[in-house]
Amino acid sequence: MAYFRMTQMALKWAISKPATNPYPFAPRVIIPGSRGLLTFNKDTCVYCSVCRKKCPTGAIGVNRHQKKWAIDRLRCISCGYCVEACPKDSLALSTSHGSPAVTKDREIYQGEMPAPKAPAAAPAPVPAG
């Protein structure tokens, strides 16, 4: 009976478990292979700036002299171009999508300077665009 197509389905779902996740109480199942947050390893990075040049949105800033690497998380589109381009494999995409951002900050990483000098106070330059 044509009228009962939906009724059948409704009855079936009335007695089955909900298809939705109880989100804040149970986290979303992480799918392997998902492109999430970009992670940076400052110990292997040589500050060559290839990632900065490759980034299509201009989210990455690199200062070779001060050994600073910075990322604007809200600009990053997790495309993975920088990961493919990095000659030292210092960059990787994790499957985690991070916590919600409430402020617009740049995450700045400071590499170890070779000679003990006074730490530079100037922030990493932001590439235009």
């Binding site: 799918i31 392997p32 292979g33 998902s34 589109i77 997790s78």
Partner: peptide
């Protein structure tokens, strides 16, 4: 979910 597992994105495949 299939799309995310194979490409890494849900709607923007990239």
């Amino acid at each position: 979910n299939i799309i995310e597992a194979t490409t890494g994105g849900r709607v923007i495949f990239g």
